[in-house]
Computed example of a mutant assay.
Amino acid sequence: MSEITYIRGDATAPSGKGAKVIAHVCNDLGGWGKGFVLALSRRWPEPEKAYRAWHRDRAKNDFGLGAVQLIQVDRYLWVANMIGQHGTRTGSKGVPVRYEAIDRALTKLADEAIERSASVHMPRIGCGLAGGKWPRVEPLIAERLVARHIPVTVYSYGEEAPF
């Protein structure tokens, strides 16, 4: 089984050849405006537009924890909006990250990546504003993606602590 590759760089500019999916975690409230999504929106308007429409029409679709939406932003590049956090703030019920939802989303993402013969690129999903811990997320990526022989690259950017 291959390993997760860790590099310092920008996950919105994935390295390597071939088809690629940029995966990230979104909330279940329809909010888009802090964290990694800002970097995505600076590069492409489509992921935000698609996410907002998906949330707006949620009564008629699969929007909810564990769901995944793939948006093509270039010929061989997609962005995966994965619903893996409940709300946006830490409160009496803890941090917003929902590991079980990330696990379900990664399972769906694996099928999509295999269908496209794509590698997966991401920041440390669920570990920024969602409040998750990488030692809980990393095994999910290994089980759902790496175990299915999907190449995964995780990016550390700017002032963020190295791996």
Rank of each mutant, 00 (worst) to 15 (best):
E100P: 09
I22T: 04
V37W: 04
I114N: 02
E138M: 07
G84R: 11
L70M: 06
R144I: 10
I114H: 08
L38Q: 09
G16Q: 00
E100G: 14
V120R: 02
L106K: 03
V68F: 12
A59S: 12
S117I: 09
K20V: 08
K20I: 11
G128I: 00
A67I: 00
G30L: 09
K49G: 13
L106I: 06
I22S: 00
R98F: 01
E112N: 10
I114F: 03
G9F: 02
F36A: 08
G94Y: 09
P139W: 02
E159T: 13
V25N: 11
G158M: 09
V68C: 10
Q85H: 10
S119G: 15
E159D: 15
R144K: 11
W134P: 04
G9C: 05
R124P: 03
L77Q: 10
L145P: 03
L38E: 14
G66W: 05
A39I: 01
Y6C: 01
A19L: 04
P45Q: 05
T107W: 06
G35D: 02
S92V: 13
E159L: 15
L106V: 12
I150W: 04
A80M: 10
H121A: 03
I22H: 06
D111S: 14
R52F: 13
G66H: 09
Y6E: 03
